[in-house]
């Protein structure tokens, strides 16, 4: 290995380079968050396509015989808790932007609890179905949505929980008098970029929840 190459084993940066790479890192969170939404959009759009394809095909008149519906009360509760979680994430983020870190934490932990309840209800609902999974196109689509929703809720839960846990550790790492909302520390700046993307993803999840609630329970 050449001497030049050895020199590079530990990265060195000028302050300008460090700043440039920090910008890149924050932009990556922004771009990554949007791309993640694109990726999930194609996945849930596939499920929506499935819903409409089977509904319009109505093979053997078995799209939705006797208009069976998954338990509507539980379904509404799942939707409500998911929507509340998203609302809390958005409101909390707005408070965070104006310096209310504590408000965001309260909103965040409450959102986590709402998501856990929504997930629990979704799993409970799967055990209380009035139909067999393969009894109709609707029944099948419902099962796929329910499993997807559990996965989506786990993703939201994980993202918010890791941010909250990180913010607690950051508190002790930051200089006295600075908060994660206003610190110029690189880690705090990256945290803010990550949080912005997380909030964006929560909004996307809320839209998905509304759409599928309408598809599954209303139409």
């Amino acid at each position: 290995m050449t001497a030049t190459a050895r020199r590079h084993e530990v990265m060195t940066s000028t302050p300008e380079e460090a700043e440039y790479e920090l910008r890149q890192s924050i932009n990556s969170y922004w771009t990554g968050g949007r791309l993640l939404v694109g990726m999930f959009t194609f996945f849930v759009a596939s499920l929506a396509f499935t819903y409409f394809y089977l509904r319009s095909s109505n093979s053997g008149g078995l799209w939705r015989p006797a208009h069976v519906t998954a338990p509507t009360g539980t379904g509404a509760a799942i939707f409500a808790f998911s929507a509340v979680a998203a609302l809390l994430a958005v409101v909390g983020y707005r408070r965070f932007q104006s310096g209310g870190v504590q408000d965001w934490k309260v909103a965040g932990w409450t959102a986590v609890m709402a998501l856990v309840i929504a997930m629990g209800l979704q799993i409970y609902q799967l055990t209380q179905l009035p139909f067999y999974p393969g009894s109709s196109g609707y029944a099948s689509t419902f099962i796929a949505w329910a499993v997807t929703n559990v996965f989506l809720l786990i993703c939201l839960l994980y993202w918010m929980e890791t941010l909250l846990a990180q913010s607690m550790r950051l508190r002790s790492a930051l200089p006295v008098g600075e908060t994660v909302a206003d610190s110029a520390s690189p880690r705090a700046q990256k945290f803010r970029g990550n949080l912005e993307s997380c909030t964006f993803f929560f909004q996307f999840a809320a839209i998905v929840a509304v759409l599928f609630w309408a598809l599954i329970y209303l139409i």
């Binding site: 393969g134 009894s135 099948s140």
Partner: peptide, 25 residues
């Protein structure tokens, strides 16, 4: 991945996405 997921559900949870006789296609 979504298509594979539905196929896995058909073969494990006994859904009927790809089974014409049960409302699938």
């Amino acid at each position: 991945v979504a298509g594979g997921f539905l196929g896995i559900l058909d073969r494990t949870a006994q859904t009927a996405f790809y089974v014409n006789e049960h409302g699938g296609s």
